[in-house]
Amino acid sequence: MAVGGLVAIGLAGSGLVLAFGQALSVNTPTVALGKVARGSQATTFTVTTAGLVSATTGNGALVGTATGLPFSFSIGCSNCDSNQTGTGHTFTLTVTTSTSSGASGVTVGVYSYGSISNASLSGTAPAPADPLTVTFTNVTKWPVTIGLGFTYTVDTTTTNGASTVSYSATVTQTD
């Protein structure tokens, strides 16, 4: 009994180290950007981490209101009890995008991260990039939620109708 107790203390003191039966998970948001009127110039829209959408270049136009924003990812750890946090350990969330069929002329990119809950962002804010990698540490509680900002560009060749652009989110423990 004494040995078991001491082992438990040792694990708690070292923070989360994923063992068999424990697994990270990431929930990806469904985002519907609504209607966009194509312009005579390629138009880039910026979606802030607060979910605000605005056209930053070009002469296309937003129509109506985007839904499903902000672009927020929830990272959980299954079978991790409340004491098994990630203190002292480092995790990364990487988001990459790719064009799906039917979405010719539409490009989505992730450009920044915003708020994070239940953990600390590690390092400095990255420059706009695709893929975007966010590193966080000192998890105090699962799940960890990270809001990201992104852009989408509609060029002049985009055909009318519904388009979808795929993205992939990967969460990794890096130590």
Binding site: V31, K35, S100, A103, V106, Y152, T164, S166, S168
Partner: peptide, 10 residues
Amino acid sequence: ANNSVAITLI
């Protein structure tokens, strides 16, 4: 995990 962003062009 994967998902998609939906956009409707008009």
